[in-house]
Design a protein around this nucleic acid. Structure first.
Length: 427
RNA sequence: GGGGGGGUUCCAGAGCGGUCAAAUGGGACGGACUGUAAAUCCGUUACUUCGGUUUCGAAGGUUCGAAUCCUUCCCCCCCCA
């Protein structure tokens, strides 16, 4: 299927430079997307860009993933209302390594002419001196042009101002595009809609410097139906790295999508075809409470990001925690199985000897573990009916726990509200 | 340089000598309802050995008693030059 048409029906096309679709139709074309090393893992927001790159590859084109070893040292002002702090080089390198590893797991690097490549713009900037840069790059773009960009204009109008460093960012990114165009025959840059200004500086630069032609496609910013920011939960960002967001939490994130969002996300984040999606949506509407759509969405993405075995565990955990998984079920499991099910759920340990003499709930929840920050808070939560241990609601805030309360002589399952689980292990 | 306003509990924002752990709104978290949804309703939102203890930019002072008055200091904002 035509790449541009595919983006269009999936709702992934925000802006496209005239002529782009025609250029892609002529045959295998190289395009790139840049990833900022602001953290050592990518998050669900960048997943969209990774998948775009993958769709691009599946459409027969050659994808480049650019990691911003150089641009990360400058800081993209787009969408930021204030100057950012610079990352130290140590952190930057650590982040770059993490991101590179993640990118490698999605793209195909061994499929002939359109094999993916990862490039780091630090490679062509590290030996580029300041004077060379202002003579060879700076000369082709006017300050007037740069100041007209929204990202710059907004900051110039505000009181916080903008440093020369961040002002120069678009030129650095523009030069990236030129470099890839010149040396890798890469004629297309893609990205989020906030990148449009930076991308166009690149195409403009290519045109003015070498009279070349280059293209741009941006995707819309993903928003939830209720207008709040996508990719965040109470617990913070949803990351692709299992160390930061467990597969279970990751699965839950998608499962919890509202109907409207799920319908959107499944187009954006999966490779189901248009007709498959229409079927799924229709099925979902006949029985919305079964949430088929959310389940299909969550399973597909979790498998892609974490793998099938991790999805299995996430499903088992979900079944137990939200289904009719009873305590009896848990009692039948051995220690390893219990730990597997509770993978991705906060763990705490408590001294078995101390349990012999008894630990009262408040001490247990606030001091022996960090489930609550203070005894007062634990108490209020218990009085409000918000705490269960081993699936039994705690009604008495002076209850004392002893080894007889342990499941399999080892575990206590604490629930804060309905959705927040904690595992306490006695050792 | 001159004049004025202000810094309050997660945020916004009342309080202006005791009845103030501090109104109200938002957010957050819990409960009910439900589809692990939305909307709605209800509760909680400093710590505590439940006797008290530490909070209202910081440090001192006045007073039986201060977020509220005085002094000094720090930081923000506005107007005039």
């Amino acid at each position: 299927m035509d790449f541009v048409e595919e983006l269009r029906w999936r709702g992934l096309l925000h802006d496209i430079m005239p002529g782009t679709q025609e250029k892609l139709a002529q045959g295998i074309t190289a395009g790139y997307i840049g990833f900022d090393p602001t953290a050592d893992s990518l998050h669900v927001g960048s997943l969209l860009q990774i998948l775009t790159l993958l769709r691009f590859q599946k459409a027969g084109h050659k994808p480049f993933a650019l990691v911003g070893g150089a641009t990360g040292m400058v800081g993209d002002p787009s969408g930021k209302s204030a100057e950012r702090n610079l990352l130290s080089e140590d952190i930057l390198n650590h982040n770059l390594a993490g991101i590179k590893k993640q990118l490698e797991q999605f793209l195909d690097f061994d499929c002939g002419a359109n094999s993916a490549e990862i490039v780091n713009n630090y490679d062509w900037f590290k030996n580029f001196t300041f004077l060379d840069f202002i003579r060879n790059a700076g000369k082709h773009i006017t300050v007037n042009y740069m100041m007209a960009k929204d990202s710059v204009k907004k900051r110039l109008e505000s009181e916080v101002g903008m440093s020369f460093t961040e002002f120069s960012y678009q030129l650095v990114q523009g030069y990236d595009f030129y470099y890839l165009w010149k040396h890798k025959n890469c004629v297309l840059q893609m990205g989020g809609s906030d990148q449009w200004g930076n991308i166009v500086t690149g195409t403009e630069f290519i045109r003015r410097k070498d009279g070349g032609e280059a293209f741009a496609i941006t995707s819309p910013l993903i928003k939830k139906a209720d207008g709040t920011k996508f990719g965040k939960t109470e617990g913070g960002n949803i990351w692709l790295s299992a160390d930061k967001t467990s597969p279970y939490q990751f699965y839950q994130f998608w499962l919890n999508a509202s109907d409207a969002d799920a319908e959107n996300y499944i187009k954006i984040f999966t490779f189901f075809t248009q007709s498959e999606i229409i079927d799924l949506v229709a099925q979902h509407q006949t029985a919305p409470h079964l949430r088929l759509l959310q389940k299909a969405l969550a399973a597909d993405i979790t498998t892609r990001v974490h793998g099938a075995p991790q999805l299995e565990t996430a499903l088992k955990t979900t079944d137990f925690l939200f289904g009719n998984g009873s305590l009896d079920f848990l009692k039948q499991l051995n220690t390893a199985q219990v730990l597997q099910i509770f993978e991705g759920i906060p763990h705490f340990t408590v001294d078995k000897n101390e349990l012999q003499t008894g630990i009262d709930v408040l001490t247990l929840l606030a001091e022996r573990t960090k489930i609550f920050t203070s005894k007062g808070e634990s108490k209020k939560m218990i009085d409000g009916g918000g705490v269960s241990v081993n699936r039994i609601k705690i009604t008495d805030n002076s209850k004392v726990f002893t080894p007889t309360d342990l499941i399999n002589q080892q575990f206590l399952v604490v629930q804060k509200g309905k959705k927040n689980y904690f595992l306490i292990k006695a050792i």
